[in-house]
C-alpha cells in the first residue's frame, strides 16, 4: 500500500518582521508526513516547532516555499476542519463547564445536540475525566485542564491532530498515563499526529518519526525513523532498542547545537 502524504512542506520559509529586524523562524524546511504517521518535533526553545505547527494550521502564513495539507492549502484544510489543535496552554473558557468547553467546537460545527452529548461523554472517558463534566475549569488541576483541552480537540474527530507540548506542564505519572492513552487512541483511529515536545523519551515512546530541529534560523537538522514496533507497552522504554533511538535523538540535538556555536 502506498501511503499518501498528509502534510508536505517544500523549502518552507517563514520570516517574522520584528522591531529588532527579521527573525527566521523557519528556513528551508522540507518534510513529508504520511497518513497515520506520528511525528514528534523536538529541539531547543525558539527553533520554530510551534511556528511549523501553526503554519500547518494556517494560523501563520509562510513567506516562502510551499506547504500542502491533505492535498489542499492549509487554509482550505482549516476551513474543512481537517485538524484538531491542542495549544500549549489549556485555554478553556472560564465561563463554560468542562462539558461546555468540549462542546464548543461541536456547537460551532452545528452538530445535533444528542450527538454533541454522546461525543462529550466519549471523549471525557477517553481522557479519564468522567464525572468532571459539570465542573468549571478553575475547579480542576492544571493536568486535568490540559486533558480537557485534549478532549476538546478530539471531540470532532479530525483526521489530523496537532499538539503543541500538550503534556509539558504535567507530572511524570500523569504524563505516562496520557502518553499511553494517546498511543492507544492513535492506534485505534489511524489519525495523523504532529506532536511538539521537549522530552526525548516522550518523543521516542510516541512517534514513528522524530524531527530534530535547531534554531537561528529554525530548520530541520535530522529526521529519525523510529524502528520500534507500533505496539508499545510503557516498559519498552527500558529496552536497548529504545535507548538506542533516544541516543540518536540526543546526538541529533547536540549536533544542532554545535552548528549554532
Amino acid at each position: 500500500m502506498v501511503s499518501q502524504p498528509v502534510i508536505r512542506a517544500e523549502n518552507l520559509d517563514l520570516t517574522f518582521q520584528t522591531n529588532d529586524g527579521p527573525v527566521h523562524a523557519l528556513k528551508g524546511v522540507n518534510l513529508t508526513i504520511d497518513k497515520g504517521d506520528f511525528v514528534s518535533f523536538i529541539g531547543p526553545s525558539g527553533c520554530g516547532k510551534t511556528t511549523f505547527l501553526r503554519v500547518v494550521a494556517a494560523l501563520e502564513h509562510p513567506t516562502g516555499g510551499s506547504i500542502s495539507v491533505a492535498g489542499m492549502s492549509p487554509d482550505e484544510a482549516r476551513r474543512k476542519r481537517m485538524y484538531g489543535y491542542v495549544f500549549q496552554a489549556a485555554g478553556l473558557y472560564p465561563w463554560r463547564t468542562i462539558r461546555g468547553n468540549i462542546k464548543l467546537p461541536l456547537e460551532i460545527m452545528g452538530m445535533p445536540r444528542d450527538e454533541q452529548e454522546e461525543r462529550v461523554e466519549r471523549v471525557l472517558e477517553l481522557v479519564d475525566l468522567k464525572g468532571f463534566g459539570k465542573k468549571y475549569p478553575w475547579q480542576l488541576s492544571g493536568g486535568m485542564q490540559q486533558r480537557a483541552s485534549i478532549a476538546r480537540a478530539l471531540a470532532f474527530d479530525a483526521e489530523i491532530l496537532l499538539m503543541d507540548e500538550p503534556f509539558g506542564a504535567l507530572d511524570e505519572i500523569v504524563r505516562d498515563h496520557l502518553n499511553e492513552q494517546l498511543l492507544k487512541l492513535w492506534a485505534a483511529t489511524d489519525k495523523t499526529i504532529g506532536f511538539v515536545t521537549h522530552s526525548i523519551p516522550e518523543a521516542v515512546y510516541l512517534s514513528t518519526r522524530i524531527v530534530v530541529m535547531s534554531p537561528r534560523p529554525g530548520r530541520i537538522t535530522d529526521v529519525i525513523e523510529n524502528p520500534l514496533p507500533r505496539e508499545r507497552p510503557l516498559d519498552i522504554r527500558d529496552t536497548p532498542e529504545f535507548l538506542e533511538v533516544a541516543h540518536r535523538v540526543r546526538e541529533g540535538l547536540r549536533a544542532g547545537h554545535a552548528y549554532d556555536d
Partner: peptide, 26 residues
C-alpha cells in the same frame, strides 16, 4: 490563543462574537 482556537474551528465572526467576545466582556 483564544481567537486562534476558534479559527481552527473555522468559526464565523458572529460565532466568535457570541461564544467568545461577548461572554469575555461581561
Amino acid at each position: 490563543e483564544q481567537l486562534d482556537l476558534l479559527k481552527t474551528y473555522n468559526a464565523s465572526g458572529a460565532q466568535t462574537f457570541w461564544k467568545l467576545r461577548l461572554p469575555a466582556s461581561v
